[in-house]
């Protein structure tokens, strides 16, 4: 699994998973996202890049309504997942989040065993009828997160005892175990060392086979390495969105170019 060939940078899917139209996000009086339109494809890694405070994480958190947990946050506009408006009042954010999994900046395993961490989602969503089903899901998820070989003998040890990179892969396994269709990753490698980062990056490319992956990253190199499409955010605007290759070699907007070449950031 670590001898994956050079990553493809072409988009091989045309199914739109998320489609956002005129999305604004307000924190109290301040407008953090100023009208974003974007289509996120299935089976594709989409990277959100941009300087800090540009709104990329905020926008990511709109996609599974994690912003609901912040009192003063208000979202307007339309975000459709498979054609259904996720901000419709009939939508239960709890079930939405089961479909749209999320991996966070800092690895955040629960203070439980590795097994219980992975089994957490399937248990609350009732995905497994028997213990055997659950075992299957846990193994499958850990394999998918490339953690099985390291963790299979210590499933009952606390997840917090793993190394940073392993913890983050555990969190990915935990997210995968709920059978999501989309995986949101908020700077998943920023707290990891280079070797762990490489492992997680390879994993992200693997995951593309089955999920639509959206990753927020600070590092342009990482965006270039893992994504097929890249969106550049600046001061709450989506400045440019396109094929990763095109964004990095031939940006159309001067702001993108300044950022890529290191003049703003």
């Amino acid at each position: 699994m670590y001898d994956t060939p050079t990553l493809e940078r072409t988009v091989d899917s045309n199914t739109v998973k998320f489609s956002a139209r005129d999305v604004h996000v307000f924190y109290g009086e301040t407008e953090a996202i100023k009208g974003v339109d974007i289509d996120i494809l299935d089976n594709t890694v989409t990277a959100f890049i941009g300087p800090s405070g540009c709104g990329k994480s905020t926008f990511l958190r709109c996609l599974n309504r994690m912003n609901d947990t912040i009192d003063i946050c208000r979202v307007t506009g339309k975000i459709l997942l498979d054609g259904a408006d996720i901000y419709d009042k009939h939508i239960d954010p709890v079930q939405l989040r089961a479909k749209v999994g999320m991996v966070f900046q800092k690895p955040n395993p629960f203070p439980k065993s590795i097994y219980d961490n992975v089994a957490y989602g399937p248990r609350i969503h009732g995905l497994a009828r028997t213990k055997a089903d659950l075992d299957v899901i846990v193994e499958k998820s850990l394999r998918r997160a490339a953690l099985w070989t390291e963790a299979k003998d210590r499933l009952n040890e606390p997840g917090t005892g793993l190394s940073g990179g392993q913890q983050q892969r555990l969190c990915i396994a935990r997210a995968v175990a709920t059978a999501p269709e989309v995986l949101l990753m908020d700077e998943p490698c920023s707290a990891l060392d280079p070797i762990a980062t490489a492992q997680v990056e390879e994993l992200i490319d693997e995951l593309r086979q089955e999920y639509s992956v959206v990753i927020v990253t600070h590092s342009m190199q990482q965006a270039a390495r893992v994504s097929q499409k890249t969106a550049f955010f600046h001061l709450g605007d989506l400045v440019e969105f396109g094929e990763t290759g095109q964004i990095f070699t031939n940006p159309r907007d001067p702001r993108t170019e300044s950022y890529i070449t290191g003049r703003i950031g």
Binding site: M66, T69, V94, A98, G101, M102, N108, G121, I124, R174
Partner: peptide, 24 residues
């Protein structure tokens, strides 16, 4: 981050409280 982790997996707030926050 643990609250976010649980909510991000689709836990209800009660589940987050009883299965993650409270044990922690």
């Amino acid at each position: 981050s643990l609250r976010d982790g649980a909510l991000g997996l689709g836990a209800t707030r009660a589940e987050m409280m009883t299965t993650v926050l409270f044990p922690a």
